[in-house]
Computed example of a mutant assay.
Amino acid sequence: MTTVTEVWLRRYQPRPAPAFRLVCLPHAGGAASSFREWGAQLPDSVELSAVQYPGREDRVNEPFATGIPELAGSIALALRPLADCPLVLFGHGLGALVAYEVARVLQAAYSVHIDHLVVSGRRAPSLAVPGVVHKRPDQAVIDEISRLSGTSAELLRDYAFRRFFLAAIRSDFRLAETYRAEPGPKLTCPLTSVIGCDDIEVDAFHASCWSDHTTGPFTFRSLPGGHFYLLQDQEAVLHLLSICFAQRSNCVSG
């Protein structure tokens, strides 16, 4: 029988006794396989899991999520059994909002305080603004994707890929563009906000306002690249995450 954890998480390289669990949440239009290669580059002490949203890859026949709160509640339930060791959440774009809401649910509903939240390429929830890309014609959605440089032009010209991808990306744009953070207690965990220094969507001010959403230590980082800097320099992102693990290890050993 498939467990709720197995439905939502893909563990490409399970570790027998991890010191940390890194859980990655994809960007709009993304899927768990976006993080497949990360596992081999992480220390043996870190187990990587990637969230698989409904309607993607091996969940392609399932309906898309109707809202971020619903999505976060299901993911938090799936993560609860994995809280036997420190959890670090990483989310990019839409994934940053989902990761934040997952952390809130874990803390409020299950008294699970994650070890670190790393949000990437997204303005703080308190600065959320409405959007209408999800309501636009197909070509306008494709133009927006191209503007952000998240998907190759060659793939977008492929009719079969585009037909499938547009449904997923439109659904994800709707989730992000209609999202509004509900009032509630702040997180207590360390929080790191990261952007590409040439990101045309999020600047340093928007990213730094994530500090208002936790009582824990806050760090802002800017890495070379645009909105999808993590695709251009995966090594830099993994190095940043390794700092989070090292800081925790130092605290425990101290």
Rank of each mutant, 00 (worst) to 15 (best):
T219V: 15
V237Y: 02
H134A: 11
V132I: 05
V133G: 01
G216R: 05
T192P: 05
Y53D: 02
C244R: 15
P137W: 07
T5I: 08
V252N: 06
N250D: 13
A204Y: 00
R180A: 13
C244T: 11
G254I: 06
A140R: 14
A207R: 11
E62C: 11
W38G: 10
V7D: 10
P185Q: 05
L48M: 10
S242N: 11
I243S: 12
R147V: 03
P224C: 07
H134V: 10
H134Y: 13
L223H: 03
D84Q: 03
P43E: 01
R163N: 12
G30I: 05
T3Y: 05
A128K: 06
A153T: 13
D158L: 14
R180V: 15
A236R: 12
G39F: 04
D158M: 11
D58H: 09
A128N: 05
S74M: 15
V132K: 07
L9V: 10
L240Q: 03
I169F: 02
S149W: 00
R11N: 01
F90W: 11
S208A: 14
V4M: 12
S34F: 13
Q13I: 13
F220A: 08
P183Y: 05
L191Q: 03
F64E: 07
S222E: 12
D44M: 09
G131W: 10
E182L: 15
R11F: 05
F164V: 09
I142M: 11
A99I: 03
R10Q: 13
H213R: 00
R221C: 07
G254L: 12
